[in-house]
């Protein structure tokens, strides 16, 4: 009855060899393709650095003004505008302006990436049940696997720096964009689609003229979620060399600097609220000019 009490596990040496061969394989892969992959991401890195420099070079009143203008355009609410301006000013006043600019630039780049990758994937998913069956579990994994686990191969491949950090953030933040695009398109009224068919619309015309416009509120909810989740990754990304508000937090953890951690953490929260209000109220306004829907 030995087999009942003792788990039939792989022998210790076998197990070590098994792990070793995986590590070895990946290392060889890194050696062979690491540079190619790095140069593939080079333009992205350049763009990120350019944006960060641009934001840092922008005089602070102009930046605050631009954010306030964006908030006004998106929400038409004075409360959001004033709230955004004041919190940005406080962030600068408390000496976190530069880190905030770094964080904003990585969030912006990450959002652009998630949008331009997530939208087409979501569309493909919405058009084919098979694609949905394949992509859904991958998204589940991306959302639940501890971020540290995929940081390992990313760092092995690309080293420490901004690009691996960006990739880690995108992996974590892209699933809601894909899911909500898929959902939004699938929820489009079947009768409206039938009407499009009845008027002879091609699949492309249906997508561009009917499905995407009607899915926009959901797609925007996806963008909003993506921004929130990438902000949540700021601290973890800073562990692999992403500059920004995450690094002081990390420093504060290892040195028990309570005030420093709190201030930088609150700055992240402030950014999150500003981004959230702006993107959410824009999504809501997209819906509102449709009038009262069908009575």
């Amino acid at each position: 009855m030995d087999w009942l009490t003792k788990f039939p596990e792989l022998g210790r040496t076998d197990l070590r060899d098994f792990r070793k061969s995986i590590d070895q394989g990946f290392k060889e892969f890194t050696r062979a393709y690491g540079e190619d992959i790095e140069s593939f991401f080079e333009p992205l890195l350049q763009f990120l650095i350019w944006l960060e420099k641009l934001l840092l070079a922008t005089p602070w009143p102009i930046f605050i003004f631009v954010v306030a203008a964006l908030a006004w355009f998106a929400s038409r609410s004075l409360r959001v505008v004033i709230g955004s301006a004041i919190s940005l000013f406080l962030i600068g006043f408390l000496g976190m302006w530069e880190d905030t600019m770094s964080t904003v630039s990585i969030i912006v780049v990450c959002t652009i990436l998630c949008f331009s990758l997530g939208l087409p994937v979501g569309i493909v998913m919405s058009r084919s049940d098979r694609a949905q069956a394949i992509v859904t579990p991958i998204l589940d994994i991306m959302q639940t696997i501890p971020s540290f686990v995929y940081l390992i191969p990313v760092v092995m491949l690309l080293g420490i720096g901004k690009v691996p950090g960006l990739i880690a953030v995108v992996i974590y933040a892209i699933p809601p964009m894909i899911r909500l695009t898929n959902l939004g398109i699938r929820l489009v009224d079947k009768e409206v689609l039938e009407a499009a068919d009845a008027f002879g619309a091609s699949p492309w015309q249906k997508l561009v003229q009917v499905q995407i416009p009607l899915a926009l509120p959901n797609i925007f909810a996806g963008v909003n979620q993506t921004i929130m989740m990438s902000l949540a990754m700021v601290v973890i990304a800073s562990m692999i060399g992403v500059t920004g508000l995450g690094q002081p937090v990390l420093k504060a953890i290892s040195n028990q600097y309570l005030a420093m951690g709190l201030l930088n953490g609150l700055a992240i929260v402030a950014l999150a609220i500003i981004f959230d209000r702006i993107s959410q109220s824009y999504g809501k306004r997209l819906q509102s000019h449709r009038g009262g829907q069908n009575e």
Partner: peptide, 9 residues
């Protein structure tokens, strides 16, 4: 169509 099926946007 019975339920109009207009494009709401």
């Amino acid at each position: 169509f019975q339920r109009f099926a207009l494009l709401p946007h």
